[in-house]
Design a protein around this nucleic acid. Structure first.
Lengths: 223, 223
DNA sequence: CGATTTGTTATACGCTTGAATAACTGCGAG
DNA sequence: CTCGCAGTTATTCAAGCGTATAACAAATCG
């Protein structure tokens, strides 16, 4: 009847581990599987500890949502290069690993399904969404400016909405049924759609050239 | 201490009412709020009755998911008119009431978040998805045929994926943050994006002409 | 109009949940 | 090296969960 061994961690470490364990639980078993006992178990501690770091289970879920949003959007910020390169990378990054995979989607959907129920989650969501779209608007504004076109915030806003929708939708398709698509197929579709939408070609990112096959297929009837 | 009054309903009625109650519970309080007691309460019966019609709570959730999918896709099937009109209506229908609203989204997200956990739900999802996309592929094939273009299944498949992505993404944006967009704005964006994608103009549905303002705005820089 | 079926209610059971609390102990301060 | 505190464990609690089952009564049928 000996007590279990344990080590005392710093607050930052513990909170991080617990949040990470929460995300793992949700992705593996859904929100219903993220019980305080499961989370604690996955983090290698006992259930009571969670309440030592988070006022309630709701709070740890909110913190986990913030972390998820940050993780899904951080890759798309701090892009460098010319405006065209940044726009191109933005598209690519949002449709490939590690942003686009089934784990991301199940986590995202789990939280989204609670956004309309829990006002605290709704606030977190809204902030993340607006920030993402503003980032995109700026990218578009820079892109057009680099092409010598006049500033036009209304145009940029509309295009950002449209492009955000396209990226979200293709991200979703890729996450949900990635095995149905060829390598780079979704990225190619995104480039073709967005090029058509904004009326300018965009060079694909240099780091990894997706099949041009599909883009060519799409272009057959453009001209 | 009198027993509660009740009336005996047909199996079809009861099952319908219980499934409807399930969807209500989920949309109002998330999957966690859809307990057998809450569902029964909303349906005006007692909890035990649920197990009389459904082998388990899992089963009633699966049936509810089937109903939701049918409801989200039925409007997009059985469209009539010319191929162009049907394609146009398809876009419109999927981005306006009753398909696009916040209730639809919270229901959809709740189930999606379990698709990766529950194989039975995954099967239901996959069937609905493939059926939806095939419908769209057929629409596109008819559209191109009506324009005298050669049949090209690969092209139709690729375009269907892209268009499905665009519609999903814009549907999502509209459901999540409908109040951020102007009346008909998302529909206009969808038309512009898809016209650009497939390389042909599509007349908007006759029943309700969305603001052409946004479409014109998008077109400024095309040409 | 009484018998019978079966849809429905009512109640109970075992289990899990989020939370509260008491007991323990690793570890840095002194 | 010891002390004391705060991080951690262990235990408990009430509430709610899905499920099982027996009693009841509304509708049907002869």
């Amino acid at each position: 009847m000996s007590r279990r061994d344990f080590h005392r961690a710093t607050e930052a470490e513990r909170r991080h581990d617990l949040i990470e364990a929460t995300l793992d639980c949700i992705s593996e078993a859904g929100l219903q599987g993220a019980t305080v006992r499961q989370i604690a178990n996955k983090a290698g501690v006992t259930a009571g500890l969670i309440r030592h770091y988070f006022a309630s289970k709701e709070v740890i879920l909110q913190e986990a949502y913030k972390v998820l949003i940050a993780r899904l959007t951080e890759k798309a910020k701090n892009l460098d290069g010319t405006p065209e390169e940044r726009l191109s990378s933005f598209i690519f990054v949002n449709l490939t690993e590690p942003v686009a995979n089934s784990r991301s989607l199940s986590l995202w959907a789990a939280f989204i399904s609670r956004v309309s129920v829990d006002p605290a989650l709704a606030a977190i969501h809204r902030e993340g969404y607006l920030s993402f779209r503003q980032e995109l608007e700026q990218l578009l504004a820079d892109f057009f400016a680099a092409r010598g076109m006049a500033a036009d915030p209304a145009r940029d806003r509309t295009l950002a909405i449209a492009m955000n929708g396209i990226l979200d939708g293709l991200w979703l398709e890729g996450c949900l049924a990635g095995e149905l698509f060829g390598e780079g197929e979704l990225v190619s579709i995104a480039f073709s759609s967005i090029e058509a939408l904004i009326g300018h070609p965009i060079a694909a990112p240099t780091q990894s050239e997706p099949d041009r096959e599909y883009r060519d297929a799409l272009r057959i009837h453009h001209r």
